[in-house]
Each structure stands twice: as C-alpha cells, then as structure tokens.
Amino acid sequence: MDIVEFTPETEQLTWTFGGAAPIRRVKPGSVMRLWTEDAFCGRLRSTEDLASASLNMPFVNPQTGPFYVEGAEPGDTLVLHLVELTPARGWGASATIPFFGGLTSTDRTATLQDPLPERTWIYEVDTDKQTVGFRAQGSDLELALPIETMLGTVGVAPAAGEVRSSLVPDTFGGNMDTPEMRAGATCFLRVNVEGALFSVGDGHYRQGEGESCGTAVEGSMNVVLIVELLKTPGPAWPRIENDDYLAVVGSSRPLEDAWRAGQVDMVGWLGQLHGLDKLDAYQLLSQISEVPLANVVDVNYSVVTKVPKRLVPASEVYSGIHRHLREIAATL
C-alpha cells in the first residue's frame, strides 16, 4: 500500500477546479495524509480581524491538490474514502461578510439595504473534550459545541477544459459544503479529464445544514483519505455512501433545481440497484428520501438527497467498495 504525505507550501495552494497542473501523481489504492488550509487562508485569527480588511478576493477557499490519479480516464468513477479529519489548529473562525450569506443582500439578490455589519467569531478547540467554543459578542452566552469535522470542498477538474472557482459546487463536486462529507464517508465522482485531477480543502470543524451566514467554523485540517478508481461509468452528480445512507448532492440555482438534480440522479441510482423502472423508483423515493440542505449561500446552492439503507434491500453498491475501504481504514 502506497502512503502519500503532502503538506502544501503557500505558493502550492490552488484556487480553482481545472486549470492547475497536478502537484503529485498517485496510484489507486494509495493512502493519503494531507493538510488543508482554512477558507480564510489563516488570516482571521482574532475577533479584531475583519473579512473586508483581511481577505484577498478571489484568493479564498484554497485547495490542496490537484492530484493526478494514474489510470484515470474520462468517464471513470473516482472513489475517495475519508478516513480521518482532525483539526490542525487550536482555533477555528467564522464571520459575517458584506453582501454574502443567506440572510443579507447579495450581488444576486440585490436590495437597497446596507450589508449586515461585519463580525468575526473565534472558536477555541478543546481537544480533550472534542468541542469548539461559541462565544457571543453581543451578549454573555457561551456554548461548548461538539466537533463534527467535514470537508467543504471535494472535487475533480471539470470537463472540456473548463476552470471553475473553488467557491463553486457543480457536477464535478467542488464547494458543496455538505456535512455528509465527513470521516467514514465514501465519495464517488465522475472523471472528466485524464488523471481526474482531484483536490480537497475548506475544512470545517462543524457546520449547520445550509451554512446560513456563509461561513462554518472554518479551520485547517489534517486529512487521511484512500484513493480508488473504478472502470465503471461515473455518476452525473457527486454521490456519497456511508454506513447508513446513500446520498446524491445536486448543485444549481434556484434551490429547487439543486433539489431536482439530486432527486433525478437518485431515481436512476435506485433503478440501477434494485431493478426498478423510472416511475417505481420515483414513487419509492417520494416515500423514503431525506433532503438536508447543504448550502444556500454559494454561487450554486447544494441540496442532498439521502436514502436510508435500512429501508431498501441490501445491494452491492459499486461492487461493495465502501465496505472494502472501511475495512482497510480500520487497519490504518
């Protein structure tokens, strides 16, 4: 088993999916131990640091990668199993940013209102208790919230030479911001270019569904993942499997089109797994799906369609590769 360890220097960080040369070549089956920078590039370190003065747009949401997967060809399925996501700093940061977020005027939802005031929150990490500390600034409330690490961005290079900002989620994955992208999950992505050119980043120490204000508890992350490759047709939209659910992430605007994208792909997935025609799969999904919001703030919104495994017959999803990778992860 190949073990690849990589911590990028600042100049090696990337800001797009597509358009960047691969930083390393890796073989399918490799275990990768990576470090990712936070979405703010580590520039928000105190409540005195405000986004407008500290951030250098569009150089936010830096990615670790891209990595060239040997043997990956357009149309294949790239498999990324997240083994471990561990905070790499003793603090995380969140912020309100002018004209960004779900409950403020934006460049796409224009009103005559002034932007919400800027504010930065610093969450101290308690490693022993596995919590992050919320401290209100306009009152005296303090809370210890459980650490629930996830990756906001997991993606491959888009097709046709397209270059997309690391702030964007779409069919290639990208900035989906779903809490489903946590340790123990297996992500399936369609390969669009030779080598797949996948990147990861945007670590969150925790995030509520929808990421209402546009920022989670953003933090640098130590990432352990396993890379695999299947010579089977890749999915139309990113798919996720964990021990309890199958999920599809659809991303678009308006919000209902993001929902539709995931629903349509899940109808096809259920049909493939259980021999259902389109209408039977549609009917079954209507009665068993769970649909958490991932983000309602990014360039595209992301909606997750989930199916509980306990409610459908057991099936060999992608030849049982999730179970196989879980077994390998347990030995690391």
Rank of each mutant, 00 (worst) to 15 (best):
F40A: 14
H81I: 01
A39M: 09
L151I: 06
Y318H: 07
L145W: 15
A294M: 03
V227R: 02
D2M: 12
T171N: 02
A258S: 15
I23W: 07
V200F: 03
G133P: 00
P8V: 11
E5T: 15
E256F: 08
E11N: 12
S302F: 04
S165Y: 03
I240Q: 00
Q207D: 09
P313K: 11
C187R: 05
E290C: 02
Y205R: 12
D2S: 15
I97R: 14
Q130G: 05
R206F: 10
A144S: 13
E209P: 02
A247Y: 04
V291R: 07
F67W: 01
I240P: 00
S289V: 02
K278E: 15
P146N: 10
E148T: 09
P115W: 06
P235L: 04
V132W: 04
V156T: 00
G101K: 04
N56T: 10
Q12V: 07
L82F: 13
L50H: 14
Q207P: 03
S139V: 05
M266A: 12
R164A: 08
T36K: 09
V297M: 12
A88H: 13
E316P: 06
P158E: 08
V60D: 10
E124A: 14
T120Q: 08
T96H: 10
V227D: 00
S252F: 05
A330T: 13
S199H: 03
A330W: 12
D126S: 10
D140E: 10
V69W: 05
A216E: 01
L293K: 03
S46G: 13
S54I: 09
G155Y: 00
A21H: 05
G155T: 00
V248E: 13
S302R: 05
G174T: 07
V217W: 00
T109N: 13
L141S: 03
L141H: 09
V299P: 03
E256Y: 07
G184K: 05
A314I: 13
T171L: 02
E9A: 15
D140T: 01
I122D: 11
V304T: 12
G65I: 04
M176C: 15
G234A: 06
P292E: 07
L151E: 06
L276D: 10
W91K: 15
T106V: 07
C187A: 10
F100E: 05
W35C: 09
L284R: 04
G138H: 03
H274S: 02
G138L: 05
V297W: 06
A294H: 08
T14Q: 10
R253N: 06
T186L: 02
E11G: 04
F59L: 15
A330C: 12
S212I: 06
S251H: 09
L229Q: 05
A95N: 12
D243A: 13
A281I: 04
L270F: 09
L279S: 13
